[in-house]
């Protein structure tokens, strides 16, 4: 995994875990890699991974079974989407809006673009 420059590492790790859950690589009730395994894989400090897992726990995406490890929560996918949606709305959308405004892009044009994008990528 390549880390990007501008986002806190623990959040990038959270994205990485969420990605795996959304793509169903890790399913509900399955064990997620331990803090140590994850730290080794990503070459980061275990305390950083711990911080990620605490965040994901608060969002009810994973839960901690004492003594066994972390598991994907039952309603994880819904919670991931929720979490990602808030993130998108707060962080990425303003950037898009800024460009839409600056470049005078009409909402109709966006609509058609969006439709064909969905068709190409997700409906085939």
């Amino acid at each position: 995994m390549e880390f990007r420059d501008n986002k806190a590492i623990y959040l990038q790790i959270a994205d990485y875990v969420c990605e795996h859950i959304l793509l169903s690589k890790w399913k509900a009730d399955e064990k997620v890699p331990s803090v140590r395994e994850m730290a080794v894989e990503l070459e980061v400090n275990p305390n950083t991974v711990m911080r990620t897992y605490e965040l994901l726990q608060n969002k009810n995406i994973i839960n901690n079974k004492r003594g066994i490890g972390f598991f994907v929560a039952d309603e994880a996918i819904a919670n991931v989407k929720d979490y990602r949606k808030t993130q998108f709305m707060e962080e990425e959308l303003p950037v898009v809006f800024r460009n839409v405004y600056l470049l005078n892009i009409g909402f109709d044009e966006l609509q058609t673009r969006y439709n064909s994008f969905v068709k190409e990528n997700f409906n085939s």
């Binding site: 140590r36 730290a39 080794v40 894989e41 990503l42 070459e43 980061v44 400090n45 275990p46 305390n47």
Partner: peptide, 12 residues
């Protein structure tokens, strides 16, 4: 260097 980082991550 990558091996070193992995090893240190597991050594903590």
């Amino acid at each position: 260097k990558a091996q070193f980082r992995k090893i240190m991550a597991s050594a903590l």
